[in-house]
Design a protein around this nucleic acid. Structure first.
Ligand code: FES
Ligand code: FES
Lengths: 140, 140
DNA sequence: AAAAACTTGACTATTTTAGTCGGGTATATA
DNA sequence: TATATACCCGACTAAAATAGTCAAGTTTTT
């Protein structure tokens, strides 16, 4: 039950942007240096964030990325969705005819896993990027 | 963010036991047939459940496994712990000196992931095996 | 004695993950 | 207009995790 590093780094990088952009574009190079995340990896991550309209890019010298929404409005769930990090704790699809074990009826645990997914997703839905910035003791 | 199949099958198999044991031991063969889970895989799973005192075994003919606690008392979290399925959504250890990115201070997202873990764990802590059996429409 | 059923460690194929590489394109500034 | 900076994007790979099998037992009831 782990979150993958792409999602983790995405949240981290966006939090970095929220702190350090002063209405300027933030370059991946700066994020990389501040957060200790590989620049090449960040590029891959931001590609997806851009495609999902979470950031927009500014090319050329002094370029970088800008948050499309304000941190107060950016839900963490949006970030995870952008990185395909579905919170689907088990493989069984709600609408699929096949259940988890190949039978036609849903197994006894099905509803339980559904509840779990809802429980986790609601956490991400209700958290905004700005929530991460409150009460931070450590320097970023 | 997926749960592994060992944990999933463990919950499923224990739910099966709760339904079908009438104070008798339930054999893995029966569980395997009813739930469509590989017998060999079940053996591996029950080894761990036994080591963690969630089931006890009865050997020989008419043998099988018996739940140590009643379904009302068996927390789902106990099952997951038995299968090493820690809900530790990211690798950074709370007490470790190293943070997730190798720096000495905790990163800005650290507390957030901690909160997430607590949120998920509380779900598993508060659910009992018996909760899965309520309101089941589908035959097991 | 035989059959049912648990015991255990080792082994392997597949999938996922994390991360890199190479070769682009756009733009600000000197 | 040259050049450095920084985004763009698909393909690739090594390592780890996962899912599941296999072999060779032991114990107990009938
Ligand atoms: S049928 Fe959906 S989880 Fe088993
Ligand atoms: S330091 Fe713990 S998650 Fe980053």
């Amino acid at each position: 039950m782990k979150l993958n590093t792409k999602s983790r780094y995405a949240v981290m990088a966006l939090a970095d942007m929220a702190v350090f952009s002063n209405d300027n574009a933030v370059s991946l190079r700066d994020i990389s240096l501040r957060q200790g995340i590989s620049l090449l990896y960040l590029e891959q991550i931001f590609l997806r964030l851009k495609k999902n309209n979470i950031v927009k890019s500014v090319r050329g010298i002094n370029g970088g990325y800008i948050l499309v929404k304000s941190p107060k409005e950016l839900k963490i769930s949006d970030i995870l969705i952008a990185l395909d990090q579905k919170v689907k704790t088990i493989g069984c699809k709600k609408d699929s005819k096949k259940s988890c074990n190949g039978k036609s009826t849903k197994c006894i645990t099905h509803n339980f896993w559904d509840e779990l997914d809802i429980h986790i997703n609601s956490f991400f839905e209700n958290k905004k990027l700005s929530d991460l910035l409150k009460n931070r003791e450590a320097r970023i």
